[in-house]
Design a protein around this nucleic acid. Sequence first.
DNA 1: AATTGCATGTAAATTGTTACATGATTTT
DNA 2: AAAATCATGTAACAATTTACATGCAATT
Lengths: 182, 182
Amino acid sequence: MSLRHALLGLLAAAPASGYELTKQFEMSLGNAWGARHSQIYPELRRLAEEGLLEAGDEGARGRKEYTITPDGRAELRRWLVDTEPDRSARNEPLLRVFFLWVLPDEEAAAYLDKEAASYRTHLEALDEIDRTAPWGRSPVARMFRISLEEGRRWATTMAEWAEWAAGEIRSGRSAAELEGMS
Amino acid sequence: MSLRHALLGLLAAAPASGYELTKQFEMSLGNAWGARHSQIYPELRRLAEEGLLEAGDEGARGRKEYTITPDGRAELRRWLVDTEPDRSARNEPLLRVFFLWVLPDEEAAAYLDKEAASYRTHLEALDEIDRTAPWGRSPVARMFRISLEEGRRWATTMAEWAEWAAGEIRSGRSAAELEGMS
DNA sequence: AATTGCATGTAAATTGTTACATGATTTT
DNA sequence: AAAATCATGTAACAATTTACATGCAATT
């Protein structure tokens, strides 16, 4: 279960409330893993029961802040170092491309144009984060920047690929003609 | 639910059994979406009940072949054209990178080396598919090749990124020093 | 005074994984 | 004759989403 380790990872940087953690899943982390508040709150409670987190007193508006414990840090480290990442990714936009052949060429190409535009928009959003984020000298900030660069390279590659693919379809090349071209 | 549309998409190309569809999820499709036979068999039954597929007679060893119906093709088209793709991807290797800062620099860099190697291996597997797949002139083959190219560009970008990231960490640059470099 | 945002939770339904269970056919 | 592969299914469990539900605090 990646959710608990994502929560431990976020809380390893700084204590936070369930609400704040939910926002982080919506923002930066959302590109790699998704979670709603309805999943986050019960998981935080469980992690606290297991001693990996410590729950603070209730603040304004019932806010509860969770802090990671030494056991929590150890578990996070164990996950990173001793377990193999699950490489079975889930990506619906990618899935759709396999089936685009059911559409007439021009519709398929138009679909890929839209995909390309979406990746370009995403790239602009990442560039904006890059420009406006408060970059510090901490290891956390350095790794965040490296993650951001990963996102930027990925979005750039996907945009270029979608543009290329739309062109291939419009040029009407058959699979046979494509052979030995890449 | 993407699973049903993935099944419709595969069956739009050719009739197949649940067993064969399971193999396709393990192979090519697995890079974009995963599904086990225990999820596939009941879903095929449901799709047949709804009239989107038609189940053939039982063949050798109880094999059942499903064929897509016109309603099934219409639903596949509707999904591709009229619905927005869910862009909330799930990717555990990406998630881990956000938290690599908890490791000492050399351990984090070693982790990224391993990631890079994994992407290079994946790329080789895709190249092997490229070399050995029976490329035809059909729209299906053309789109499969375009999907394969997507995977190759993605794997190449990720490998290059991981190698760059390991270098950045080993060079000991702080986040502040990284600024204005990209 | 009303709206928006902060803040937490639960319940029901759906989706997905792991484990259990069986049997025929082909290959070694 | 044994092992591997083909082939299908169900049950229990875990993860995730959607919907329901509440209330305080700050802004307009």
